[in-house]
Amino acid sequence: MEFKLSAASFVSEKNFLPLDQSALYDVFIIGGGPAGLTAAVYCMRKGLSTGIVVKSLGGQVADTSDVENYMGYRHISGVDLVEKFREQVHQFPIGYDEGAEVVSFSEGKIKKVVFSDGRSFSCKALIIASGKSWRRLGVPGEDRLTGRGVAFCTVCDAPLFAGKNVVVVGGGNSGVESAIDLAPLASKVTVIQNLSELTADTVLVKKLNSFNNVEFIYNSIVEEILGEDIVSGVKLRDLGTGRVSEIATEGVFVEIGLDPNSRFVPPSLELNRFGEIPVDCNCRTSLTGVFAAGDVTTVAYKQIIIAGGEGAKAALAAWDYLLKLNEEE
């Protein structure tokens, strides 16, 4: 039996404090992925009073099995890398909250960040590093059957589909990786792709083709997920012929990419058509004193090291902003 022990999370130095509703933070950071955590370290090293709210520690990194392109580590698991990030943040007396969700914030010289549990926190500068989360299909049956056959985390849920017939929606890297994880367990895997070919990396496609229980349906989209209490099938539409068909399945893994977590921002904050936050070279957004970093922004190439770098930049830009703010006063 294997034990995936995160030893450092128990024995490392922990100096963080609960978030304080009566405090006026210099900087408040929304997000606990590489961008938010890096920003936290930079802010604390600058001596700024800082609060951070982490909905899901590590963000997408925590879902990544292996990381081989973050400098300093030839190979490290996503969970271990997140643990190292966390340790580096927790050495500081930072205001820290894990699990809560931000529902809105107000603009102005003093910004107020509101949580879904009703708590609210004030700050002078805000850094949005809320990242991205798995995109949903937005078709009938999806919400109702999530956790009842509709799944988003293959490493978590693949064992529950052993010997079953499953569908993977999406033929990009995440879809093909998901199918590779499922093929050894499931009796049959059907990959549904809206284009005429897979768009995943060649190495992944080659690996997937080594299984003999995988089928592909091209040029098709899922129109509905069927089932009373649990998934029983999907309704497909062929984009070429317009023909609608149904296939029986017990599981649907949705792997069609990511959406930015920017729903909580006020309408006055500019977003692009994908919902990403446009930023300039100094991580500034369209609102004064509001900065953004990482995958939630328009910055190209969503990589851990890039998100980390952007987080550092956002923190330093916030520091500059606060300096000027103090001079004015």
């Binding site: 995936k4 899901s56 925590a62 879902d63 978590c156």
Partner: peptide, 13 residues
């Protein structure tokens, strides 16, 4: 499931 990295959080809570 024991291979699920999100699960310990739910159990701890």
């Amino acid at each position: 499931s024991l291979a699920c990295p999100h699960c310990p959080g739910a159990v701890s809570t």
